[in-house]
Structure formats: structure tokens, C-alpha cells
């Protein structure tokens, strides 16, 4: 087991190496970087000359866009990254790692709650739809979940905002705190409630977006299991239908569910770019979107590496979970 994990980690490092090179080259190929963006106005009004801009770029190591130049830049980025230094964000004026560390938690919190609600709702729904295949329940649930999945996140978010905060006024429109309210720093509970109140709509948005997928996944797997020979055997034994479904069928559907869902865990740290931006939540996702739009190369680089690491860890967890939940899978090497 330990040997297997070590082997997988070794493999992960090789994958990350390749991925980081790829991301670096793509990021460098972005049409306009931060310096272009910031100096555009000055150049136009004649306060700066193109030569000044070039000198600035050289200072930041962004001038040489030839292949050897990029590779050289990558080498220095990489050796710094190995020491845990992902560079300095132009936009936020702080080390990239510090920005990520600070904003990742709010994203994680939102995603985690949405993830838990999603599981609680989608799995029983998927099972019920599969058990009553072709029933009214099955059709209704399928249609609604498909609709929610198909809606673009900004559109769904806008709908919810319009209905719940503008029309009904139940929830705040945007942000994380109420600007007009002043809390005493010792009033932790009040601050918490205020934040939670602001996060209700974003969480609903994320849950609605993901519930359909998980529900369909559960339904498909459950249907496959329900049609298998061992379910027929369980019924032939005389087991009550409840036991057939809850024990024999679910224990088998559980395998793909657990492996997929556990593989998604690291991804909870990655943030929801669009949703966070629409609701003006200062999470890692909206920070990354802003940085990308502004051409903040060190931050984009760092954020993408962060995502790559999360993905690789997700796959590893998923594979390890197979050995835990499926007796047929044994990890020996």
C-alpha cells in the first residue's frame, strides 16, 4: 500500500512537471500582460514611450517571448516554485502563495456546503428515480435536474438574485458582509451569521448546478446494478424489496459514487470563478478571474499549478478509495 502510494506520488511529480511547462508556455502566450494593460493609457497620452514599457517588461522577465527566452523564464520560475515561492502577484502586490492561502478558505467553505447538500439530495433522488424507472417521478426529476445543469451559472445566479433578493428581499444581493452594519469585533456569532446570510444564494447556485450531474450518475449506476444477475439472485432468495435495494443494490452503486465523490474533494479548494464573481464573493475563483483578465502572469501561473496539484491528488484519492470500497480491487504493488 505504502509502496503503491509512493509510486503514484512519483508519477504525480512527473505529470505536474509536464503540466507546469505547458501552463507556463500558454500563459506566456497570452496576448496582453499586466504591464501592457497598466501602461496602455500612459503610452497613448505620450507619458511613456514603448521603449519605457519594454524596459519595464525586462525588469519583470516578460520581454523575451522567444522559445529559449520562455524556457529560461520557466527554469527560474520552476526552481523558485520548488522552494514554495510562486512569485509575486502584480495585481495584488503580494506573494501568490499568500493570496491563495488567504482567499481559498471562503471558496472551500461555500463549495463544501454545496457538496454536502448535493450529496444529501442527489443520491436518494437518483436511487428513487432508478428504482421507479419510467415513472412520473423519474421523468420529473430527470427533466428538472437537466434544466438546472444546462443553465449557465451566471444566468442561474442572476435569476436567483432577481427573485430572492430584488423581488422578495430575503437575501442580500452581493458581497460577503453588510456594509451598513457595524459589528463589534467580539461579536463573532453576529459576524458569522451575517456572512452565512450572504452565502445562501451562492451556495444554492452551486448546489443546483451540480445536483443534476450527480443525480444522473447515481441513477445510471443504480439502473445498471438493478439489472444485474446478483440482484435477481437476491430477490430469488426471498429478500424483501427494501433490503434488495438498500443493501444489495446500493452497496454496489456505492463503489463508483464513493470513488468519484472522494476524488472531487480536493477540487473543493479550487473556487467557483463565475459564481463568486457574480455574487462579488472574495474567493479564490473570483480572484483568479480578475488576475486572468488583467494578465497577472505570476498569479495565473500559480493558480493553475494549484489546480493541477488538486486534480492529481483527486485522482490518487479516487484510486485509493477503490481499494477501500471494492473487495475485488487490491492494491499490492
Amino acid at each position: 500500500m505504502v509502496k503503491y502510494i509512493l509510486k503514484r506520488l512519483g508519477l504525480a511529480i512527473i505529470i505536474l512537471l509536464g503540466v507546469s511547462l505547458l501552463i507556463y508556455m500558454l500563459t506566456m502566450a497570452m496576448p496582453a500582460d499586466y504591464i501592457d494593460n497598466r501602461t496602455a493609457a500612459a503610452v497613448q497620452s505620450g507619458q511613456m514611450t514603448p521603449e519605457d514599457v519594454l524596459r519595464l517588461k525586462e525588469l519583470y522577465g516578460l520581454a523575451d517571448k522567444s522559445l529559449p527566452g520562455i524556457l529560461k523564464g520557466y527554469a527560474s520560475w520552476f526552481s523558485n516554485a520548488l522552494q514554495g515561492d510562486l512569485g509575486f502577484s502584480f495585481l495584488y502586490g503580494r506573494p501568490v502563495t499568500q493570496v491563495i492561502k488567504e482567499y481559498v478558505w471562503i471558496s472551500f467553505f461555500i463549495s463544501l456546503i454545496a457538496y454536502v447538500i448535493e450529496i444529501i439530495i442527489a443520491i436518494p433522488m437518483g436511487i428513487r428515480a432508478a428504482v421507479n424507472q419510467y415513472s412520473g417521478y423519474d421523468y420529473t426529476v430527470s427533466v428538472f435536474s437537466m434544466m438546472a445543469t444546462a443553465l449557465p451559472s451566471f444566468f442561474l445566479a442572476a435569476l436567483l438574485m432577481n427573485f430572492f433578493s430584488i423581488n422578495l428581499g430575503w437575501f442580500p444581493l452581493q458581497g460577503l458582509t453588510t456594509a451598513t452594519k457595524i459589528f463589534h469585533p467580539s461579536d463573532k456569532w453576529g459576524i458569522f451569521l451575517d456572512k452565512a446570510w450572504h452565502l445562501v444564494l451562492p451556495i444554492i447556485t452551486l448546489t443546483l448546478l451540480s445536483i443534476g450531474g450527480l443525480m444522473r450518475y447515481t441513477r445510471t449506476n443504480m439502473l445498471e446494478v438493478m439489472n444485474s444477475d446478483y440482484i435477481r439472485t437476491a430477490r430469488a432468495k426471498g429478500l424483501p424489496e427494501k433490503k434488495v435495494i438498500n443493501k444489495h443494490a446500493f452497496r454496489n452503486t456505492f463503489i463508483p459514487l464513493v470513488t468519484t465523490l472522494s476524488g472531487m474533494l480536493p477540487g473543493l479548494f479550487s473556487g467557483a470563478m463565475i459564481t463568486e464573481t457574480v455574487f462579488s464573493i472574495p474567493g479564490i475563483g473570483s480572484m483568479a478571474l480578475r488576475a486572468t483578465l488583467q494578465g497577472d502572469i505570476p498569479f495565473v501561473m500559480g493558480y493553475n499549478m494549484f489546480l493541477a496539484i488538486l486534480t492529481v491528488i483527486g485522482y490518487l484519492i479516487s484510486d485509493l478509495m477503490y481499494a477501500v470500497v471494492d473487495p475485488r480491487v487490491q492494491i499490492s504493488k
Binding site: 446478483y230 439472485t233 437476491a234 432468495k237 426471498g238 444489495h248 454496489n252
Partner: peptide, 20 residues
Amino acid sequence: RGKEIAMIFQEPMTSLNPVF
């Protein structure tokens, strides 16, 4: 089922639940 009439199936490889 089971108590009065029992059944043995065509496919022994898939007729037992793999996880129990």
C-alpha cells in the same frame, strides 16, 4: 421465493453479489 421455490441461475460468475 426461496422458501418454497428456489432458483439456480445460468451464470454462476455474475449471480453472486461481488461485494459480500
